[in-house]
Computed example of a mutant assay.
Amino acid sequence: MTLMNDKVHAYKDQISQMENYLPSVVQSYHQFTGECFQAGQLDEKTKQLIALGIGLFANNEVCTFYHVQEARSKGASDQEIMETVAVAAAVGGGHALSQGVTRVQKVLS
């Protein structure tokens, strides 16, 4: 838990430092992401679970830690989080397989 919190806090500290150089960029990013994660047709928990799956697929450690925390804070259960992990694994495996059977077989033929 400490490693996770340390990495998320380090990211937040670095974003704050970046804001010293590019305040409008950082503020625009926060405004944009804040809007994206507001409840709409999808609730906030679902959006956090989607973000977690994308973070896993992208191999982004900080986003993975952050979105697990956020999903929990929005009411996601451990089961829902682990199902998200499974879906991300299926997409990741499917991505490699689909590229293998299309691109690789095209080159081989």
Score class of each variant (00 low, 15 high):
19 E>K: 14
109 S>G: 12
82 M>G: 00
19 E>G: 10
70 E>K: 11
108 L>P: 05
13 D>E: 15
50 I>T: 06
15 I>W: 09
39 A>I: 09
34 G>C: 07
31 Q>C: 10
38 Q>S: 06
27 Q>E: 15
104 V>Y: 07
16 S>G: 12
100 G>S: 04
5 N>A: 14
51 A>H: 04
23 P>Q: 11
83 E>C: 01
66 Y>G: 04
34 G>L: 10
3 L>G: 13
84 T>I: 03
74 K>F: 04
41 Q>F: 10
9 H>C: 07
92 G>N: 05
72 R>M: 02
4 M>Y: 12
38 Q>H: 09
5 N>K: 15
23 P>N: 11
80 E>C: 00
11 Y>W: 14
106 K>S: 11
81 I>T: 07
34 G>A: 07
16 S>E: 15
106 K>A: 11
103 R>L: 09
31 Q>K: 11
56 L>Y: 03
50 I>W: 05
101 V>R: 06
74 K>Q: 03
58 A>D: 05
88 A>C: 02
44 E>S: 13
88 A>L: 02
18 M>L: 15
100 G>D: 06
18 M>R: 12
51 A>R: 00
29 Y>H: 15
7 K>F: 11
84 T>E: 01
9 H>D: 13
61 E>M: 05
8 V>Y: 10
106 K>H: 09
60 N>K: 09
19 E>Y: 07
40 G>K: 04
40 G>D: 13
92 G>R: 01
16 S>A: 15
47 K>W: 08
3 L>Y: 14
109 S>Y: 10
68 V>F: 01
18 M>P: 08
61 E>C: 06
78 D>C: 00
46 T>I: 07
74 K>D: 04
107 V>W: 10
100 G>A: 03
99 Q>N: 12
89 A>T: 02
60 N>L: 08
23 P>I: 08
42 L>P: 13
70 E>F: 03
62 V>I: 04
85 V>W: 01
11 Y>P: 10
18 M>C: 14
79 Q>C: 04
65 F>S: 01
78 D>M: 03
63 C>N: 01
77 S>L: 02
36 C>F: 11
53 G>R: 01
72 R>C: 04
102 T>H: 03
74 K>C: 06
18 M>K: 13
4 M>Q: 12
27 Q>F: 11
14 Q>F: 12
102 T>I: 04
8 V>W: 08
12 K>H: 13
9 H>E: 14
14 Q>V: 14
16 S>N: 14
38 Q>M: 12
41 Q>H: 13
102 T>V: 07
67 H>Q: 05
39 A>R: 09
92 G>M: 05
105 Q>F: 13
36 C>Q: 10
27 Q>C: 10
51 A>G: 03
55 G>Y: 06
100 G>T: 06
89 A>V: 01
7 K>L: 15
40 G>V: 08
20 N>G: 10
94 G>R: 05
52 L>S: 01
55 G>C: 05
60 N>M: 07
71 A>L: 03
30 H>Y: 12
105 Q>G: 02
71 A>N: 00
25 V>N: 14
31 Q>L: 12
18 M>F: 12
29 Y>K: 11
43 D>M: 07
62 V>A: 07
48 Q>C: 11
104 V>M: 08
96 A>Q: 03
103 R>F: 09
12 K>D: 15
33 T>I: 14
66 Y>T: 08
26 V>K: 12
38 Q>E: 14
104 V>H: 05
84 T>P: 00
71 A>S: 02
25 V>Y: 15
56 L>A: 00
8 V>H: 06
46 T>F: 03
45 K>N: 03
90 A>S: 04
103 R>N: 09
50 I>G: 03
